[in-house]
Write a protein that binds this DNA or RNA. Structure first.
Lengths: 142, 142
DNA sequence: CATTAAATTGATAACGGTTATCAATATAAA
DNA sequence: TTTATATTGATAACCGTTATCAATTTAATG
């Protein structure tokens, strides 16, 4: 069964790039997270495994992982990016608090069904979709 | 009929803030745009009306307009924000062809209904949503 | 194993959009 | 007017991210 590491290795080979201990470690640590991963938290955890890993290497590797489709980058209000695992993960949509940036993942089968109907109606073949519900979360309303 | 200027004025008064020529002008210019407005384009247009307007004033005014609900800020991958008019505009979603870039606007009342249900479920107050269906259009499939 | 070309790394400077600071000025109420 | 206070414009600071570069590592080849 294909896993993230093989997929990443294959991608690197195809591009004449190299499989390095740093890249392996970064992917490992990334996969130990769930949901949306913030740079700060990821970096902190990575320094535990390799205290001298440069921040640039981390950014570069996240870009590679994005390029090969294993992860996806999101931008929210605060100017920071978050990264999300995209492989062996069921599709879901996002509920985002525009005040504190907190996010909740959800999915709704009926919404997916109506999306397909709309695509048929306009002659589109649906490949992917992105739905973000922007609002204020319970905590921020207090 | 309530318009953007009155709404902004009222908001300012409520907060003990002041109605100034700069704020009026910025709102005027903003409203002359359609869809997502990029900072750069807005600033450029504003300098035509008042060449010495400070960039800080522009950012501050956009924040006020956001606070009073007239516009909404979005963040995308490139780190830049865009601003979108939120008043007297009918909401719609997008169907986007990833091959030719063609877009179709649509709306679906049932999807909107389920979105509200989801928000209630997680304790969010829905302000806005963004749904993009990405696919291949009829023409590009031929 | 040794050689070699090229990719990678870590340190750090640079970048760029946005925000904070502050003195001068404008606003609006009394 | 007067007066308190909000606003403005200039600019420095901020901060997440990216570019640069010399030293090092990788992996293919002899």
């Amino acid at each position: 069964m294909l896993n993230e590491f093989d997929l990443f290795k294959d991608f690197l080979r195809q591009q004449n790039l190299r499989w390095t201990p740093q890249r392996k470690m970064i992917l490992e640590v990334f996969l130990s997270f769930e949901g949306h991963v913030e740079m700060e938290a990821l970096h902190k955890q990575i320094l535990i495994h390799q205290p001298d890993l440069g921040i640039a290497t981390l950014y570069r590797t996240l870009k590679l992982l994005t390029d090969c489709g294993l992860i996806e980058a999101h931008s929210f209000q605060n100017g920071k990016k978050t990264y999300e695992r995209m492989f062996h993960v069921r599709h879901h949509d996002h509920l985002i608090c525009t005040r504190c940036g907190d996010t909740v993942e959800f999915e709704h089968p009926l919404i997916e069904k109506y999306q397909l109907q709309i695509c048929e109606q306009y002659g589109f073949t649906l490949k992917h979709h992105k739905m973000e519900l922007l609002g204020i979360c319970r905590n921020c309303l207090k």
